[in-house]
């Protein structure tokens, strides 16, 4: 249970960090919160030759609202979301979700961007990024590119990031002030990874649902939007029976993961429940209320 030897680099700026990544190439890894990477190194699932520790880079610690987007720097930790980071529905949504991620001491170190880079199918932040359409800023020595979360996440623990690229920032579009958003997660013990979870958001257009987004996590090999559920809901009036229909449509459409303790059929059933409850939570959310 001890990590294999490696060389530690502690850059102070993004340009130093990406220079290290370019020098090291394939065998190097970024060290952010370490809350997934260090366990993997202890279990010798990961044995990088070099780690580029980004915790000392001040410019990556920022969180701000620019051009209707919430810009989250690479070392913004989960615990930053305990209180809303912006006053609108997005800030409240993130606050209602963060308590489902691991435990308090892990939230003090683990980062939003590290969760995306790690791409666990049951990561809450991957679900948020995929459902709300986050844009991810990847920086390397040769420049910068911006990738949609849906194209970045490429399967379980797999992304389209190049080894020489640093995920410097995630940009989440703000939700409209009239938006409704809700989240539901099921697991057996507090702090465990979700067996299934769903996120639902829509704009309330005079009682009709518009711009409906429904995402699923922990069910398939990656967090992703579910177009079958969205098609049932778009332009309709929010009712409990419609939410149940959307849940059923999602359940029929998914290709669930299977593991030693949880069958694909179980996850399919759970899909319907998670979608229905996330939608109910969205309908119950109001612009005045701080959900926790």
């Amino acid at each position: 249970m001890k990590p294999a030897p490696f060389v530690l680099h502690s850059p102070k700026t993004v340009s130093e960090a990406v220079a290290h990544l370019a020098d090291i190439g394939e065998d190097g890894l970024v060290l952010a919160g370490g809350q997934s990477l260090v366990p993997m190194m202890a279990l010798r699932v990961a044995y990088p030759s070099d780690l580029v520790d980004i915790n000392g880079i001040e410019e990556l610690q920022n969180i701000s609202v620019e051009n209707e987007e919430l810009a989250i720097g690479a070392t913004v930790r989960h615990a930053r979301f305990y209180d809303p980071v912006e006053p609108g529905p997005l800030g409240r949504l993130l606050t209602s979700i963060v308590h489902h991620i691991a435990h308090h001491p892990i939230r003090e170190r683990g980062t939003f961007c590290g969760s995306l880079a790690h791409a666990d199918p049951a990561s809450e932040w991957c679900l948020v990024a995929a459902t709300l359409g986050a844009k991810l800023v990847l920086v390397s020595q040769t420049g910068e590119r911006i990738v949609e979360a849906g194209e970045f996440i490429d399967g379980a623990m797999s992304t389209t990031r190049e080894p020489t690229e640093l995920l410097a920032q995630a940009r989440l579009p703000l939700l409209a002030p009239s938006a409704r958003a809700g989240f539901y997660e099921f697991n057996r013990r507090a702090g465990d990874f979700a067996l299934g979870m769903a996120l639902a958001a829509y704009d309330d257009d005079d009682g009709l649902m518009r711009n409906v987004r429904v995402g699923l996590g922990g069910i398939e090999d990656r967090a992703a939007r579910n177009s079958a559920a969205e098609a049932v809901l778009e332009g309709q009036r929010p009712t409990q029976s419609l939410f149940a229909d959307a849940g059923r449509a999602a359940a029929e459409s998914v290709d669930p993961m299977e593991d030693a303790t949880t069958s694909a059929e179980y996850r399919r059933d759970l899909t319907a429940v998670c979608v229905e409850r996330a939608l109910a939570a969205a309908a119950a959310s109001s612009s005045a209320q701080t959900s926790r």
């Binding site: 370490g34 809350q35 366990p39 170190r109």
Partner: peptide
């Protein structure tokens, strides 16, 4: 801040 010292 309370942290896991095995993960640092």
């Amino acid at each position: 801040k309370a942290v896991r010292s095995c993960l640092m």
